[in-house]
Design a protein around this nucleic acid. Structure first.
Lengths: 257, 257
DNA sequence: TTCGAGTGCGAGCGGTGCTAACACTGCGGT
DNA sequence: ACCGCAGTGTTAGCACCGCTCGCACTCGAA
């Protein structure tokens, strides 16, 4: 049992230090700590490589161990299980996606429709060029894997969602009266949506608008990227055409057309 | 090699006889042939059971063999590989779904909007009550599995799609001029869409309308059933609310509102 | 300096898909 | 009636998987 405790602790440390690749967190102080974070990064990189080439269910701890020149039991000093490694990778993927969307938003200038459009299209392009990653986070849940209760993936996912809901909230305060035929999705009692500390509109129509946008974008992406969309009948570029139509439709129904 | 040939032949026979569970095809004549079809049915039933409880990637040939009281190599007399069994199951799932939709269409009476609405809602209810099956056919492609070239799954999938496109074609001939803001999705050169022998409208707007309906329905289903839709924030029933809104939106934009 | 935490290893358990080699059954052709 | 062989099933086994156990070593803090 003390063994198991050490494993869990080791794994948590690995995930913690490796969560954000883009911004350097507090620098590791000791030599051992530095070596550990380097090993974690190397393992995650090898795992991500394998995930890209073999798919989510093809991720093999033993193969990752071989790739980093380590015996397979050695890997368990860094990740307590295959699911733990998967969780770390999913978190990184969410963060990468959120980074991409935030960059697109900032690069789009101050005009709100431009910003929302840019974010939507960046979402498409990221998904199109990161299909294994897209499958990993948005596809059918990996069997025998369930997201951890601590919510490390959930927080990363919310960062992604906040890019959309934040822009939608801006549009809502400006043009709420223009929204036509929104589905009414009341929040569960006690739930409050927010982007950071800024609360989102507490209106069933707003939740409906946000969810509908998200589901429409996702529908095109999922069908198109998974090859279910009228296979062989339309050009591949048609998927993006359909996606752009959904984006413009969304802007239009938000009074931003 | 003669061994391999026999395997392939055996597998094909198994798939052929087992493809349509609902309607009895040509009755097996010989005793051996009857025993074989029975074994195939039993294997597929056990496989479907396991798929429902363990998920698509958890389908294990050895476990199926144990369930039907057979050694695992014995199964290879009926299905040449795990992928072969998966293909047979996918085909059956498509057929079951198509049967369900066709029944809903016929039960809805002659009024076109009622028929289309009934089919859409039946699609939701089937997916909601058949989540593993939904994941199997519409989720991310199972890694290391690719649909066979012979298209046994494709034909079954087209039967499913034809329920939607057939009704859409009816609506199109009646109200094509009412369709607002459809995306233009030209077919690839030489491709002709048809339901059975009846050709579908050869109009980029029709393809756009059909694809957009399909992608919108799928978006809600995929996000809702896979748990990605604002988890913990809205009631579970809200997924159906959103879906119904998409259905009514589709009917409206088809001039059937 | 010491001693324990951190790190790594080989061996091994039970599971997987799949193959090889063999045995039996029963149907068809002579 | 009998033979031959396709069809069906078996056991043994390969290479892989996730994961655990028990041991060895090395570093760093007390």
């Amino acid at each position: 049992m003390s063994h198991a405790t050490r494993l869990v602790h080791a794994s948590r440390a690995g995930i913690r230090y490796g969560a954000r690749m883009t911004t350097a967190t507090a620098p590791p102080v000791g030599r051992r700590e530095r070596l550990r974070t380097e090993a974690v990064q190397q393992i995650k990189a090898a795992g991500m490589d394998q995930l890209r080439t073999e798919g989510a269910a093809g991720l093999s701890l033993r193969a990752v161990a071989r790739a980093v020149g380590m015996s397979s039991p050695g890997l368990y000093r860094y990740f307590a299980s295959r699911d733990d490694l998967l969780t770390a990778l999913i978190t990184d993927v969410y963060d990468d996606l959120a980074d991409t969307l935030e960059r697109a938003r900032e690069a789009a200038g101050p005009h709100l429709p431009d910003r929302l459009r840019a974010v939507c299209l960046a979402y498409y392009d990221w998904s199109d060029t990161h299909r294994p990653e897209f499958s990993l986070v948005f596809g059918a849940p990996v069997p025998t894997y369930s997201a951890p209760r601590d919510g490390s993936t959930t927080t990363a996912a919310q960062r992604f969602g906040a890019v959309f809901t934040g822009l939608l909230a801006e549009a809502w305060t400006q043009h709420a009266e223009h929204v036509a035929r929104p589905p009414l999705l009341p929040l569960r009692p006690g739930v409050r949506l927010a982007v950071g500390d800024v609360p989102l509109p507490d209106d069933p129509r707003f939740v409906g608008v946000a969810t509908r946008l998200w589901s429409r974008l996702h529908g095109v992406l999922a069908l198109g990227l998974f090859g279910h969309l009228l296979p062989q009948t339309v050009e591949a570029a048609a998927v993006r055409t359909l996606y752009e139509a959904e984006v413009e439709d969304a802007l239009h129904s938000l009074g931003l057309g």
